[in-house]
Nucleic acid binder design. Structure first.
Lengths: 70, 70
DNA sequence: ACTCAATGTTAAAAATATTTTACATTAGGT
DNA sequence: ACCTAATGTAAAATATTTTTAACATTGAGT
């Protein structure tokens, strides 16, 4: 599992959702701001559980937030 | 992230897909048999990347394989 | 130009996921 | 009942994700 092939639209979704900050999103899903930042930046892919929580915040299906590029 | 609230239908999907073994599924997604077993058993939730790979094997959307129970 | 909030970076420690190995149990076929 | 393949269990080692903390950068507003 070396090269990560998963992209996400978190940054856009935050912007569309009243410009929610990384800090706010982090608090809503129960992780640190750093974690949100690292995921947005694609440093690593999150746990499935965290991915579900993030999608839930934006009321989007998980696959609309995260995309697996074959 | 203590109590995991994610269920999955991997066992059923393996059964429906010509009774694919844990070993075969593990090989297709590039992890060990133990990892597949632990996930099926709900010991922990996988990485988003692994979740996508598993869903891909069964040609199902991720959310049809894994369900986040609120 | 200054200030402040938001974001990005780095490094180390902690927590969790995954591997490896080895053995126990279960279930089906003969 | 016996064999064998598939599944389950356990413990230790490794890899990856997440936390923590401290500091740098960017950008908007004044």
């Amino acid at each position: 599992m070396k090269d990560i092939k998963i992209t996400n639209t978190i940054r856009t979704l935050r912007f569309l959702d009243k410009e929610m900050t990384q800090q706010e999103l982090a608090e809503k899903v129960g992780v640190t701001r750093h974690t949100i930042m690292a995921i947005e930046k694609g440093k690593y892919s999150p746990t499935l559980e965290l991915a579900f929580k993030i999608a839930e915040v934006f009321n989007k299906p998980l696959e609309e937030v995260f995309t697996y590029e074959k």
